[in-house]
Design a protein around this nucleic acid. Structure first.
Lengths: 228, 228
DNA sequence: TTCCATTAACCTTAATTAACCTTAATTGGC
DNA sequence: GCCAATTAAGGTTAATTAAGGTTAATGGAA
């Protein structure tokens, strides 16, 4: 699946060059020219990373970055700027930026830094998927495809396992329904199918024994796997 | 506890300047002048982060970085280099570096980038166990999507939670209606819809139990969440 | 066959829209 | 400047629509 880059740039020429190069590199790109559209793009495009030019009309990049951070806490944001003053760089990181590139920059540098941010992120997302996991009074054995409760052992199918891992790996984080569908089926043709719901139902019934475990639906967003 | 920085630099003058400045900033520092000592320092000093000059006698920085990575997979490594060629930067990241600073650099930049790396690291260790918030005689659990009053616990929907957080996060500050609409729906097509008002109504009714809590409308401006 | 994944049909509830009401701002005549 | 008329902003409630839940049936591979 392609990595989605949200690129916020008001200068049309630079915007086009950079966008095209990134697309050639296999990124899926959304170019947005002013701050007002950014929040909308976050909702509809679901980027994996933002590249944000600081000099924008209307809103300044720092404020925009803070808003992005408020809405998507884990999303990497790379600042792009002509300003070379250290004070700006400091402001950039304070605003929640995760990297900062000074203009003029080479495309290689941008690509490498994008990949670096994504790698830092992914290494934090999956901390060994194979080890057993304790969930309330259950134990999940990923290698054996089993969910072991004090009274019984349930065999899980590949799909059940995959979905359960995605739901639980988020450590009390909302797992977006879209992401789930994309990760498991890698496709949007499932977006109006009920298949995922059937699995959710199954997982819920598996955890019924322990009232402290709850799989909460956040309509329009996703799911939240809670263990008290 | 102080943050431990392992700084690998062969040039004595630069090494001293940088070390002293970092120490003044409250870092605990170990300066090491050649590659051979690095592995030993990793064991004895237990650094939180490495700052690594690429131009070293005997070993080159990339190789060294790979060795560090092999031994301490999670440790951030910032490259420091006089070479401005993009190819070097690419090599740096390939070798497992997590950031790359070109000389000449300002001390502020180094400090800010060190702190940024540490923060990225810490945010990956604990994926946000967002602290509960006390609102009058209620407690808001953002991670569980619950508003807990002395008498009952209300489950909140994703939207309700999002709006309530925006309203309360501003510490008795006016939250502009426009901003709310943008943050939650990321769109201006909602500017003449009544949806937000319906949520405001809902939130007000949730807080009815405590007369000291008031969600004030400032017509033409926005809302003010007041706790007496 | 048996097990798993998917679809189908129908149900429930959150999110949004609609219709109508209330109140704060603005305006315009005096 | 004062005060009613007007209008735009927001409130309220109910109806609608769209997201998701539930259960059973179908279909396909081992």
């Amino acid at each position: 699946m392609k990595t989605r880059v949200l690129y916020i740039e008001d200068e049309p020429f630079l915007g086009r060059i950079v966008s095209e190069t990134l697309q050639q590199q296999g990124f899926e790109l959304r170019l947005v020219a002013d701050g007002a559209q950014v929040m909308k793009a976050l909702q509809s495009f679901h980027p994996d990373i933002c590249v944000l030019d600081i000099m924008l009309p209307n809103v300044d990049g720092y404020t925009l970055c803070k808003e992005i951070r408020a809405q998507k806490p884990g999303l990497p944001v790379i600042f792009l700027t002509a300003r070379s003053e250290t004070a700006d760089l400091v402001k950039g990181f304070e605003a929640g930026g995760t990297d900062y590139i000074k203009k003029p920059f080479s495309m290689e540098e941008l690509i490498v830094r994008i990949n670096n941010q994504l790698q830092l992120l992914s290494s934090k997302k999956k901390p060994d998927a194979e080890a057993d996991m304790i969930i309330g009074k259950y134990r999940l054995s990923a290698s054996r495809y089993e969910l072991i409760s004090p009274t019984t052992t349930h065999k899980l199918s590949a799909r059940e396992m995959e979905i359960l891992q995605l739901l639980t790996s988020g450590n009390n984080r909302v797992v977006e329904r879209r992401d789930l569908l994309m990760q498991v089926w890698g496709d949007d043709s499932f977006f109006n199918s009920r298949t995922l719901d059937v699995y959710v139902r199954k997982l819920r019934s598996l955890f019924e024994e322990d009232p402290n475990i709850e799989l909460v639906t956040l309509k329009g967003k996703g799911y939240l796997f809670l263990v008290k």
